[in-house]
């Protein structure tokens, strides 16, 4: 089980910092920094820059995503912002507007 969960119906305005996994089912505005995996689940909304390990998005993200590992934009994801990661997958059905920066 993920250590930190922002449940549906909860809104955090500010900065979220975590040394463990973060799952967002609700809303985060501000900044999201995690050392481990970040998962924006369906219905989750993040209006913030995200930095962390592997990032999986099935919800909405408005902001830049900076990952030390991989970024997966899953079906139903809506991302507006730049993505920087070593590996990126964009699933069929994901909406994405922004730049991709991969270490080549």
């Amino acid at each position: 089980m993920a250590s930190t969960v922002i449940g549906a119906g909860i809104t955090i305005e500010g900065e979220v910092t975590s040394d463990e996994d973060v799952v967002v089912q609700g809303t985060v505005r501000g900044k999201l920094v995690a050392k481990d995996a970040v998962s924006i689940e369906h219905g989750g909304a993040v209006e913030a820059d995200i930095s962390g390990g592997p990032v999986a998005v099935a919800g909405t993200v408005t902001g830049n995503i900076n990952s030390t590992d991989r970024v997966d934009l899953q079906n139903g994801a809506k991302v507006i912002g730049n993505v920087k990661a070593t590996r990126i997958t964009i699933a069929d059905g994901a909406q994405f507007k922004g730049n991709v920066d991969m270490d080549v």
Binding site: S3, G9, I12, E13, G14, E15, T17, E20, G26, T27
Partner: peptide
Amino acid sequence: ASFIRGRVSG
């Protein structure tokens, strides 16, 4: 291991 600075509501 998490730290939140700001407002938590809902």
